[in-house]
Amino acid sequence: MTFLTDDPIDQQALIDAVLRRSDGALALFAGVVRDHHAGKAVESIFYECWRPMAEKEMAKIAAEVAAAYPDAAIAFVHRLGLLHVGEASIVIACASPHREEAFSACREVIERVKKTVPIWKREKGPDGEEWVGWQGQ
């Protein structure tokens, strides 16, 4: 599967990809563009990515989290390009026979994506645009 998309994320497709008849729990997480960051107003975020490396890292995360939670089925997609307030940048779906694994796997995926996947955001507000995370802009 591919972990990146340039289009709005199809949440139902992710659910359909993971949910089995044996599952009693489905955890869904969405990262959403919010209207502020570090005290500044945000209107939109542009997400840029190094695609081959990001796909590779996300596949590694999927495999390692699946190995850590063998009863869970996991699917996730990150969206790229220009997103406005309220739009989902990432959606993660984890299904499991019981809720504990579904919640834990879902949490693990988002924490790891934020740490290592080469995706960058440039926030746009009334005062201009800025890459997030670089000291001494």
Binding site: G31, Y47, C49, W50, M53, A54, H78, S89, I90, I110, V113, K114, K115, T116, V117, P118, I119, W120, K121, W131, V132, G133, W134
Partner: peptide, 10 residues
Amino acid sequence: VAFIPPVSGG
């Protein structure tokens, strides 16, 4: 060799 700024996905 790739130099990668702080990542901010999610």
